[in-house]
Simulated assay, not measured.
Amino acid sequence: MIKTSSNAVLLQPDQIKKHDRGGGASTTPLVTKGVGATGFITGYTEFAGGAEIAWHQHNCEESVVLIEGNAIFDIGDEHIPVRTQDTTFIPPNVPHRFRNASATEPMKILWIYASVDATRTLVETGEERPVAAEHAPH
């Protein structure tokens, strides 16, 4: 992380610790409270071939951009194919998940939450946690 005299920050993802989400997915926090964000947070989630994350919902709006690979966006009863650069808008409290459409090739998304206090609630268990991006990069 390079902080400028104006408090702007340059983040270098290859220098930031990834957080294992299990099942072949890992998250790299980018813009967080730790770098001075007050209105939104961002990060990457990478998926190994065939990986998927659990159904979940958030307490704020979310946008996801597919950076690499091919994905399936599951929301309600819909299973929508997603191509590179496709972008989603997900309202608060709407259950959803992303899956890697390839059994062998990696997939990567950029996510943006409209709150620095974003939470993730797992649909299956009701467990609520702060989004991993709240951990300051180092």
Rank of each mutant, 00 (worst) to 15 (best):
M1R: 08
M1W: 08
M1G: 10
I2Q: 11
K3P: 00
K3D: 00
T4Q: 13
S5I: 12
S6R: 09
N7D: 13
A8D: 12
A8F: 05
A8W: 05
V9W: 05
V9Y: 03
L10G: 07
L11R: 00
L11W: 00
L11V: 01
L11E: 01
P13V: 04
D14H: 12
Q15N: 09
I16E: 00
I16C: 01
I16A: 00
K18V: 07
H19K: 13
H19R: 08
D20A: 04
D20M: 01
G22V: 08
G23V: 06
G23Y: 11
S26C: 04
S26I: 08
T28Y: 03
P29V: 01
L30V: 00
V31I: 15
T32I: 00
K33M: 05
G34N: 07
G34Y: 11
V35L: 02
V35S: 02
A37E: 08
F40I: 06
I41S: 13
T42V: 08
G43Y: 15
G43I: 10
Y44S: 08
Y44N: 11
E46S: 14
F47E: 10
F47P: 11
A48H: 10
A54Q: 10
H56T: 07
Q57A: 10
H58M: 03
N59Y: 09
C60G: 02
C60Y: 05
E62M: 12
S63E: 15
S63N: 12
S63Q: 15
L66R: 05
L66G: 03
L66N: 06
E68P: 01
N70P: 00
N70A: 06
A71Y: 01
A71V: 04
A71D: 01
I72L: 12
D74N: 14
D74T: 13
I75W: 04
G76F: 07
G76W: 08
D77A: 10
D77Y: 03
V82Q: 06
R83D: 12
T87W: 07
T87A: 11
T87L: 15
T88P: 03
T88W: 02
T88G: 00
F89H: 15
F89S: 04
F89M: 09
I90T: 15
P91M: 02
V94R: 07
V94I: 14
R99K: 14
A101K: 11
A101I: 04
S102K: 03
S102Y: 00
T104S: 11
E105H: 11
E105R: 11
E105Q: 12
E105A: 15
P106K: 02
P106I: 03
K108Y: 03
K108F: 04
I109A: 04
L110H: 11
W111C: 07
W111F: 15
I112N: 14
Y113E: 12
Y113T: 12
A114R: 13
A114T: 10
A114V: 05
S115G: 10
D117P: 09
D117K: 10
A118G: 15
A118P: 09
T119L: 05
R120M: 14
R120G: 14
T121K: 09
T121F: 03
L122F: 15
V123P: 08
T125Y: 04
T125A: 02
G126C: 09
E127N: 05
P130K: 14
P130R: 13
P130W: 13
V131F: 05
A132H: 08
A132I: 12
A133T: 07
A133L: 00
H135E: 10
H135M: 10
A136W: 11
P137H: 03
H138K: 15
H138F: 12
